[in-house]
Amino acid sequence: MLQQLFFGYYAFTIIILSLLVVTRRNPVHSVMWMLLLFFHIAGLYLFLNAEFIAAIQVIVYAGAILVLFLFVVLLLNLKEEISLKQFVGSWPAGLFVTGLLFVSVVSVLGSYIQGPIGKYSIAAVRSETHTKALGKLLYTEYLFPFEIASLILLVAVIGAIVLAKRKLRS
């Protein structure tokens, strides 16, 4: 009962916050609601026994990405932004498509078939701690993708610099 209550709160808040994020006219407000949203999602992760993921959710998303967003938002002319409509003219079409897609995705849920159960039971993860278990996997079985991820980040770093810098004029 307590679990359901907990989940209900999180789910409700997450949906409300998501709606706020996409509907606010002022981008700064959107970013702020998004920050709150990410904290709630992190809380949900804790609820699902994924404390490392919750941690990086807060650190990477809330700490790094959202700050980046905030920087960029501050470039905008907020006064003009607030005075304008936030949606494009064709928003009903978007709403319609999205709604239908939601209905169809939800209707699939009934045909879910459970796969085989793995060895990382709640007790097992708890005894080993989640971070250690994830780390072990990451540095053994998923070492290669892990290295690739580092390359992706490198590309992103270089790409961001190249794209964002002004053209040097001699």
Binding site: V88, S90, A93, G94, V97, T98, L100, L101, S104, V105, S107, V108
Partner: peptide
């Protein structure tokens, strides 16, 4: 030339594929 129109059409495509599978 408007990005969202393309995105909407793409979403409609996804919808159609899902609907077809259903």
């Amino acid at each position: 030339g408007l990005m969202q129109h393309y995105a909407t059409i793409m979403a409609t495509g996804i919808l159609l594929i899902v609907a077809m599978m259903l």
